[in-house]
């Protein structure tokens, strides 16, 4: 997993509440058996005027000029500014995969759906919760100023605006540690293999019906 320490980048504003995972990456793209290739279909139904198909060459498709990510001023954006309940809907990890592959490193919103929030960390994408009033301020600033950039400093747990305002955010220490070091969860958990095995053995004794052979 790619490490996340400090990142500065252009901000793209997506001013809608309840952006769901079907909007982030429509289901026809879930048919892939790979982890990559989703970036070009991020927000597919909003980004293009036709219906996208997996494996298609997107450079030939008609683009929806009215969709914010297609505005020339947000080209190369790497920080996504969003509204309440971002990422609601399904558990598909394709959503953070698509967002990351498009080039975003962080998503800032007043709130996120739980599963999406969780999935993001596992993919080096940092979801940041800031208060609604702060998010509103950021939206106003991005829209007012072309080339607007934010800095996300994970170590200091701050989002820093061009005028030097710093907004603190919370992050669970374990997730922070993993992101800062680009650590793989499974390896960490397997360090506790003995504890897991002990637990399992006890359980097998007290609740044998949980260990029925399937066939």
């Amino acid at each position: 997993m790619e490490k996340f320490e400090k990142h500065t980048g252009i901000v793209a504003p997506l001013n809608r509440a309840n952006v769901d995972t079907d909007m982030i990456i429509p289901k026809q793209f879930l048919k892939s058996i790979k982890r990559t290739g989703f970036g070009q279909n991020l927000f597919d139904e909003w980004r293009y005027l036709d219906v996208g198909q997996p494996g298609q060459d997107c450079s030939q498709r008609p683009v929806n000029e009215e969709f914010v990510l297609n505005f020339p001023r947000y080209k190369g954006a790497s920080v996504l500014l969003a509204q309440q309940n971002f990422g609601c809907g399904s558990s598909r990890e394709h959503a953070p995969w698509a967002i990351s592959e498009y080039g975003f490193r962080a998503v800032i919103a007043p709130s996120f759906a739980d599963i999406f929030f969780n999935n993001s960390f596992k993919n080096g994408l940092l979801p940041i919760v800031l208060e609604q009033s702060v998010v509103d301020t950021l939206f106003a600033e991005v829209e007012a100023e072309e080339g607007y950039q934010l800095t996300v400093d994970l170590e200091a747990q701050q989002v820093i605006s061009p005028s030097g305002n710093a907004y603190a955010f919370e992050i669970d220490p374990f997730r922070k540690h993993c992101l800062l070091n680009g650590l793989d969860d499974i390896g960490l958990t397997l360090q506790d293999a003995d504890v897991i095995r002990d637990f399992e053995d006890k359980r097998r004794e007290t609740a044998p019906w949980l260990f029925t052979e399937l066939s």
């Binding site: 558990s91 499974i186 958990t189 397997l190 897991i196």
Partner: peptide, 21 residues
């Protein structure tokens, strides 16, 4: 009972556990 993402599917396959809050 709850939904998980693909990284967690792999985590459960490999460790029979999930990291939870």
């Amino acid at each position: 009972a709850h939904g998980i993402g693909t990284s967690e599917v792999e985590h459960v396959l490999a460790t029979q556990c999930l990291i939870q809050k």
